[in-house]
Computed example of a mutant assay.
Amino acid sequence: MKQSILLLFALALTGCSLVPKPELNIHEAELNPMSETMQALQAKQGPKYPIPVAVYSFRDQTGQYKPQQNVSSFSTAVTQGATSMLVQTLLDSKWFTPVEREGLQNLLTERKISKKQPKKPNDKDVPQLTNARLLLEGGIISYETNINTGGAGVEYYGIGASEMYREDQVTIYLRAVDVHTGKVLMSVSTTKRVFSQEMRAGLIRFTSLNRLAEAEVGFTTNEPVQFCVLQAIELAVAEMVDKGVEMGYWSPAAQNAKETALGASS
Rank of each mutant, 00 (worst) to 15 (best):
T14E: 02
A232M: 04
L90H: 04
T191C: 09
S266W: 14
S57Q: 07
S72T: 15
A238E: 05
V225C: 01
P67F: 11
L108F: 00
E239D: 15
E223A: 07
G218F: 03
K94C: 04
E102L: 12
K112S: 15
N32Q: 15
Y156W: 11
A82H: 02
L209G: 11
A176H: 03
K2F: 13
I5E: 12
G150F: 08
S84G: 13
C228W: 05
A161P: 00
S17M: 15
M164Y: 09
G81L: 13
T181C: 06
Q3L: 12
T149S: 13
G81P: 03
I204S: 15
A132C: 02
I233H: 00
T171A: 07
A253L: 13
M186L: 15
N222P: 00
L6A: 10
N210P: 03
R200G: 10
G139L: 08
G218C: 06
I141H: 11
S84M: 12
L11E: 06
L129C: 07
P121D: 05
P121E: 10
N106I: 09
V53P: 00
N210A: 09
A213C: 07
F195V: 06
C16A: 12
E234G: 06
Q88Y: 10
I51C: 03
Y49S: 13
T190R: 11
P224V: 01
E137F: 08
A264S: 10
F206A: 08
L11R: 00
Y249A: 03
D60V: 06
N70L: 13
G81N: 15
A215N: 04
Q69F: 14
V87G: 01
R101C: 06
P33K: 00
V241N: 05
S208R: 08
I51T: 09
M186I: 09
E239V: 12
L7H: 10
K192D: 04
I159A: 15
S84T: 14
Q88T: 08
Q3V: 13
Y65N: 03
E259W: 07
S17G: 05
M164T: 15
L129V: 05
W250L: 03
